[in-house]
Design a binder for these strands. Structure first.
Lengths: 149, 149
DNA sequence: CTTTCTGCAAACGATTTGCAGCAGC
DNA sequence: GCTGCTGCAAATCGTTTGCAGAAAG
């Protein structure tokens, strides 16, 4: 099956961003966004394809690429075999990742305000010192998830 | 040529860790470590092979894998085409990465103490809340390097 | 109706692996 | 001298791409 239906709010956003990027709204794309929205954590391509029900691999790859260009989803690469995708951060809430070194699973955790403040301060200092202009950041905690510990 | 020679200290560490991992010390491996030590930033495999002078691709991949198992180097994956390697953190000093979204280059920056403290505090809170046991962390700043800005 | 999307199967390319000969220890 | 490393070339496998028919707008 095609996973849970899309909320009206999310669908509207999706339509707008796809059109702005010159892309069409199709059933496959709605399914992909719905699957990612329901997961609440980054999914590998095989996980996505399975959750989507019927979906050609090439369509999964192509549509996830299209959705990324439209700013709806975000690709993340770990040391795992497959890339993972999650909803774009402005559709969820800013979060960081817990990556299990044993099973490879990636979980989301909300970003702690104190940590965010420290990251911004560090980025400002770096801009002064090196000229690097920070647009975004990523904090990953690597270790063992509860199940693998 | 084979890049700069290895410091005595680093060579001793390298010998010890390779032997402990049941691996031999070879000219190729010394070259690889020397190249990474000289670079001071994560290098892609093509960069490594070029800097090493003469080195079969397969040997590069195999030896970097061996060195990683021995705890001497560390592999990092970006959205770039190639994986990158750098010296293990306990051979350098704990640092974070500046990743340029335009040219893909990765630079090292020393970790700011305040930021480190915040990350540890966040990890502790997460352990309490979710049972995830943090062993290591990664902070990447994404943006534009001075040259691409 | 035109342009883009879909699924299939073939192509791609970074990384891995089999093998025969050489080097570490 | 035994075992593990080296380089070469071939295999692997996640991902990308060409193409003909179907669907979005």
């Amino acid at each position: 099956m095609a996973g849970p239906a899309l909320g009206a709010e999310l669908r509207a956003l999706m339509t707008e961003r796809l059109h702005r990027a010159g892309q069409r709204v199709t059933a496959n794309r709605e399914t992909l966004v719905a699957v990612l929205a329901a997961a609440g954590r980054p999914l590998t391509i095989p996980e996505i394809i399975e959750a989507a029900g019927t979906l050609a691999q090439s369509s999964a790859y192509r549509n996830l690429q299209a959705l990324e260009q439209a700013g709806l989803v975000h690709r993340i690469v770990t040391n795992d075999d497959f890339a993972r995708y999650e909803l774009a951060e402005d559709l969820t809430e800013h979060h960081h990742h817990l990556i299990c070194r044993s099973c490879g699973t990636v979980e989301d955790v909300p970003a702690a305000p104190g940590l965010e403040r420290s990251v911004r301060a560090a980025a400002d200092a770096i801009a002064r010192d090196t000229g690097f202009h920070t647009q975004h950041h990523r904090v990953d905690l690597l270790g063992l998830c509860r199940r693998c510990a």
